[in-house]
Nucleic acid binder design. Structure first.
Length: 636
DNA sequence: CATCCTTTGAAGAAA
DNA sequence: TTTCTTCAAAGGATG
């Protein structure tokens, strides 16, 4: 889902928190972006199956000969390998694998960002090779820190990229110049604050190494398709083969944490910190002075969009005079009282389903004096107990509180219509007419409770009702006896006595008038609730249908692409489920005795003889050969 | 030109 | 503790 309202003019564009990073918010800044074949962490050494064995020091950490280049490599401390793999397919395009020996060609590991970090190796003893590296390439103390994340060699370091890619959308300093991709603008930004990338995980390392190979082997160039192939290949790798990438990833993380001890993955989040969830410019300044930014075409004079939109009615706007710094209105308001506001830090980024979803805390509403103006009397993070304490026996109040459904564990919202015992009857009657308005106003409520005394709002009682409302664990013994006497009391039978209408009316008028009125009101509320529920279900149904259609579309696209991948005659993807004879040449799983045993056990569990499968495949081979000419019919 | 797509795994936040 | 979200890379496809 996109934010239709929020197009920040400075270029510090907002994004949906659930969608991938926009390119300009991620790392695709040409001036600092490394070539795709460059590993972020010094791609100096190629992976080699023969030379790496998990559990023992990696082969490349000892002095040996690079099988590809024939050039000897120096030793390295095993606990801190500064060298990282190089994509084999990219060897020819890259700086020499031993570039670190040749100034201007190699890249260091994470360079020291300007502004300074702590010593990159706080806990490491420096051996001879290490010290030589440090003196020539690593020491931030001896070499002036490179500006804007550039290595002293002049080669931009891939791990540190322009800060603009991750800047907060609402940064006042985000000038248009800084957001352009001009080298000058980027450079300036980089000088201010570098962006340290995440260390690559095992799969990313694998992907980096294998991508070029896969691309070379098939005609598909689209990365998404290549990634699918790589993902399948990754799963087909043996544990030993994967282990080396996990090990490399582990070392990468270790090195990263040593170089950037204060770095956190959260630093790269577009929205940082709990109080910064809601980075949506909402038209007023919050406590940290986020500037006013919203799309001009969404502005109605005198009104401000608050960052979300109703699926049906478009942007929800609220009056400027109702804005309260640090607070965001739900966008729902009645005719008189203006919007209910909630704290920015309580906002859920991305969307607002209903008011209840936004209320991560309880809220209490009451009237302003004797007027009908509703105001927020209090709010907080406490539960029902705290809420009960704040109910005033001299006031009419409405409490909205989130609780946890004891059956499902899901959040439920409770609306308490509170009429204090000390409220005079005239006021009671007047406010009784507001109940339905309130119920409509706070649509998210799953349970509504009409209370006059503290015993009506016992947390246990409320939770019982919540449990009942969820439909599970229903226990009629727990049913309140409140309304039991309103049903037919007399037994049906020979002793049945005809009801005297007049006396009944009299009795009702005298004794049960208020009870009846309350019951009528209750019924009305139930009816409204039912309608609201129907509406909700309708919307939910529509949403499901929409999602279903989208899913079908995706499925079709996926199938089409899969067919295309097959039709492209890409390198076969070894499947663990397939019989051993199907394994492509060079696949080294059989090298592992453990794997062979595992495979044997799998074969033994098969109800069908793999040999038969193989024979069947042989028989159907001619048909398969014809498949590429008909991509649409190719097996997925 | 900006964004999406697509993969897995690590980290952090939220439930 | 479990679940969800974000971001790492890549570059063609898409709007």
């Amino acid at each position: 889902m996109k934010w239709p309202l929020l197009d920040v003019p400075t270029g510090a564009t907002l994004k949906d928190s659930r969608s991938p990073s926009p390119a300009h918010l991620s790392n695709k800044v040409p001036v600092v972006q490394h070539a795709h074949h460059m590993h972020p962490l010094t791609p100096l050494i190629t992976y080699s199956n023969e030379r790496f064995s998990p559990g023992s020091p990696p082969g490349h950490l000892s002095p040996d000969i690079d099988p590809k280049t024939g050039i000897p490599r120096p030793p390295h401390p095993p606990e801190l390998p500064p060298y990282y793999p190089l994509s084999p397919g990219a060897v020819g395009q890259l700086p020499h694998p031993l570039g670190w020996l040749v100034p201007q060609q190699g890249q260091p590991v994470y360079s020291i960002p300007p502004g300074g970090f702590r010593h990159p190796y706080p806990a490491l003893a420096m051996n001879a090779s290490m010290s030589s590296l440090m003196s020539s390439r690593f020491s931030p103390h001896m070499v002036p820190p490179p500006a804007h994340g550039l290595h002293p060699s002049g080669i931009p370091h891939p791990t540190i990229v322009s800060p603009i890619v991750k800047q907060e959308p609402a940064q006042p300093s985000a000038s248009p110049a800084a957001t352009s991709k001009s080298p000058v603008g980027v450079k300036k930004e980089e000088e201010k604050k570098p962006h340290i990338k995440k260390p690559l995980n095992a799969f990313m390392l694998y992907m980096k190494e294998m991508r070029a190979k896969v691309v070379a082997e098939c005609t598909l160039k689209e990365s998404a398709a290549i990634n699918q192939i790589l993902g399948r290949r990754w799963h087909s790798l043996s544990r030993e083969e994967q282990a080396k990438y996990y090990e490399l990833a582990r070392k990468e993380r270790q090195l990263h944490s040593q170089l950037y001890p204060t770095w956190s993955a959260r630093d790269n989040y577009v929205n940082r910190g709990c109080c910064a969830w809601y980075r949506i410019p909402y038209g007023i300044e919050d406590a940290v002075n986020v500037p006013i930014q919203y799309r001009i075409e969404d502005v109605v004079p005198g009104w401000i969009p608050y960052g979300t939109e109703d699926a049906v009615n478009g942007p929800i706007q609220y009056r400027i005079e109702d804005a309260v710094p640090g607070w965001i209105p739900y966008g729902i308001q009645d005719a008189v009282n203006g919007p209910i506001q909630y704290r920015i830090k309580d906002a859920v980024p991305g969307w607002i389903r209903d008011p209840g979803c936004c209320v991560r805390y309880r809220a209490l509403f009451t009237y302003e004096g004797n007027s009908n103006d509703l105001r927020v009397a209090g709010s907080g993070d406490g539960g029902l107990e705290e809420m009960v304490e704040e109910l005033n026996s001299g006031k009419v109040m409405y409490a909205f509180c989130r609780v946890k459904d004891p059956n499902s564990g899901l959040p439920k919202y409770v609306l308490v219509n509170w009429t204090g015992e000390g409220v005079n009857d005239v006021r009671k009657g007047a406010c009784a007419n507001h109940v339905s308005t309130i119920a409509n106003f706070l649509k998210g409520a799953h349970v509504t409770i009409n209370a006059r005394a503290e015993e009506d709002v016992e947390p246990e009682l409320i939770m019982e009702k919540v449990a009942k409302a969820s439909g599970a664990n229903y226990n009629f013994h727990k049913e309140s006896s409140k309304f039991q006497d309103s049903g037919p009391q007399a037994p049906v039978g020979s002793v049945y006595q005809k009801t005297n209408a007049m006396s009944e009316i009299k009795r009702v008028n005298k004794d049960n008038f208020w009870a009846k009125a309350e019951k009528d009101e209750e019924n009305r509320r139930l009816e409204e609730k039912r309608r609201a529920e129907e509406e909700r279900q309708r919307l939910e149904r529509e949403r499901r249908e929409r999602e279903l259609q989208e899913a079908e579309g995706r499925e079709q696209r996926y199938k089409a692409r899969s067919n295309e991948i097959e039709a492209q005659n890409c390198p076969p993807v070894p499947q663990k489920e397939q019989a051993e004879p199907q394994q492509p040449k060079g696949f080294k799983r059989s090298e592992s005795v453990e794997k062979a045993q595992e495979a044997a056990s799998l074969v033994a569990q098969r109800p069908v003889n793999p040999r038969d499968i193989f024979k069947q495949r042989e028989k159907s081979a001619p048909a398969d050969v014809a498949a590429p000419s008909q991509p649409g019919t190719a097996p997925v």
